[in-house]
Structures are given as structure tokens and as C-alpha cells.
Nucleic acid binder design. Structure first.
Lengths: 164, 164
DNA sequence: CTAATCGTGTTGAGAGCTCAACTATTCCCG
DNA sequence: CGGGAATAGTTGAGCTCTCAACACGATTAG
């Protein structure tokens, strides 16, 4: 237990600015999707991953990994999305423990309808604000952080913290 | 309603990398504080702003602004913090509508106890991962985003969306 | 083959957040 | 001064997330 490496003034400012920017930004993203599609952003991501998968179908565990959800969160989310008719769940033929989640036609249609508003928000609130140089920097910074904070490089898993 | 300005491949990658990095990062920050101090990060910020205020006291609305909370969120949060004995609430002498929130001695002690673990997490998960150049870029990018996403420059308010 | 272990997914309780509605006070303007 | 609008803060319902516990199929070691 060594002495705390406190933040100096410059680091403090960077940290607070980063906090402010990300909070404001993700608040917007969430609000836009909530108003525009009745979905939180986490749900939108789940649907997007499904839409990109072969047959628009993924194992729950795969889906959890690619959408950066815990298993528990995904279970709750898919249950809700199934009630709403956006997603269908069926048993996995090759592993009786498993479940396959499939994006329904209705879910796909709704996702397509929601996409333009969402993309426009991302563009106007993020990319339009940054210079090309800053966009490159953001990419590098994000890659570095993501790589460091996870073992897998691209869409790393966030598993449930099973005790022990 | 013009045509959607979709993200190109490079923008897509930047966007996803940014999402991954921020999700993983804030998951860590939250988990560390939850385990280390029994607080979500939003509550920690509230306590920090109070600790920096004169007499460790702020009007609720001020506190909401500086801690990037909605009024409603802050009300719920302070109610919880008051139950736990970290914060005390009392009427504002100059405005009978108002409430003053004050960090208690116990709250201050607990905040001091929680700080080292939190700062260490911020340092090891953020600053240690970035080069000095990247830290400067992050600051600039965050400043640009925060400035664009808010009217006020530094710790902008997120008010309740009162209808119309 | 059997028993321990691991992996997959679900569940329920508890907590925090958002949204809309509400009360109470203050401000503004005629 | 009086009345409407704005401001301060709270509340409760509904939703999502986390955490811990659980059920059950798969895997592996003996």
C-alpha cells in the first residue's frame, strides 16, 4: 500500500473535462434513442449486434460479449425485447444449455427506423465537433484504453462477477 | 429531413472503440467505488463538490449543476446520503423555497477514506495508459465536446426536462 | 460410469435514474 | 398591491442495472 498518486492540477482538469463531456454526450445519446425509439442505448446496441450476425441470430453468451453486457443484464434486456416483439428466443440445437436470440422482422424494421436519428445524433454531437486530427486521436486513445481495460482487443466481455 | 449522413468505416471504428473504452472504463470506476466505499460514482461526485464548497455547503440547485445531476436525481441522492449520515439538509435562510446541503463530518471523513482508492483507479485505468501527448489530446477533445454540448463552459447543468 | 467442476442462462431483490406531476415560494409586470 | 409566470425542490411510478443465488446441461478426472 504505497502513497496515493494524486492528480496534479492539469490531470484534474483533464479528468473533469472528460467526465463532463462523456456524461453530457451519453445523456444525449440515451435521450435521443429513448424519445426516438423507446429504447435505451444498451438495447439499441444489442439489436445492432443481432442485425449484423448471420441469420440475425446469436447465442446469448456471444451477444453478451459483443454488446458489452453482463449475462444478467442481457437476460433482462432480451426478456423485455421479446415481450415487445423485437427479438425471439429459442433453444440452441447443439447445446441444450444454450439459447439463441434472433432479431424478428419487426425488430429489424424498427431498428432501421431508429438508425437515422441515432446516427445523426452521433454525428452532430461527436464527429461534427471534432477536427479530423482529433478524430484520429480519439480513435487511438480509445483503442489504447479498450486494449488495456480488457483482455480481448475489440469487443471484450464483461462477465458477471461470479464470486470466487 | 435530409438524407442520413451515415458513418463511414473509419468513423464506425472510432465510434465503437470510443463506446467500448468508455463503457469498460466507467464500469471499473463504478465498481471500484461501489466496492471500496459503497457509493456509485454519481454520489461520489456530489460529495466531492460539497467538500470543495465554502462551509462544505451548497444550494441544491447549485449542487445539481456542478455535479451534472438533474434536480430529481439529486433529490433522491441527497435523501439517500442523508439517511446514511453523510449529508445534512436544512432550509435556506434567504429563500424559503431553497434547501442547503451540507457535508457532515462523517461524510467528509468517509470521502477522504474513499479518495485514494478512487484516484488510484482513475490513474491506473486512464492516465497510466495514455502518453502525455494523448492526455493533452483527450483534454482538448473533451473541452470541445463539453463546450459544444452545453451552454455553460465548465460544469454545465442538466436540468429536468420540464415539459414545454 | 460417476462425481466434481465448469459453463450457460435465468431469476428476484435492491438500488439508482428518468419522467411527469406536484407544492411552495419568488419574481415580474401592469 | 395582485395575479400569472418562473424557480426550487420533492415525490412516486416505472424501468434498467447489479449482485448473489440458483438450475441445469456439458465436461473432465478418477
Amino acid at each position: 500500500m504505497s502513497d496515493t498518486r494524486w492528480l496534479n492540477a492539469e490531470e484534474q482538469q483533464t479528468w473533469r473535462s472528460f467526465l463532463t463531456a462523456t456524461r453530457l454526450f451519453f445523456d444525449r445519446i440515451d435521450r435521443q434513442l429513448q424519445n426516438g425509439a423507446g429504447l435505451p442505448h444498451a438495447y439499441y446496441e444489442i439489436l445492432t449486434r443481432l442485425s449484423e450476425a448471420p441469420d440475425r441470430t446469436l447465442r446469448m453468451s456471444q451477444l453478451a460479449t459483443t454488446s458489452l453486457s453482463s449475462r444478467s443484464r442481457l437476460s433482462h434486456a432480451v426478456a423485455r425485447l421479446e415481450e415487445s416483439g423485437w427479438v425471439r428466443r429459442r433453444p440452441c440445437p447443439t447445446d441444450k444449455r444454450g439459447q439463441l436470440a434472433e432479431l424478428t422482422a419487426e425488430g429489424f424494421a424498427r431498428l432501421e427506423a431508429a438508425a437515422p436519428g441515432h446516427v445523426e445524433e452521433v454525428r452532430s454531437s461527436l464527429f461534427d465537433v471534432l477536427t479530423p486530427e482529433q478524430q484520429r486521436s480519439l480513435r487511438e486513445i480509445s483503442d489504447a484504453l479498450a486494449a488495456h481495460l480488457s483482455d480481448s482487443p475489440v469487443w471484450p466481455a464483461v462477465a458477471d462477477r461470479d464470486p470466487g
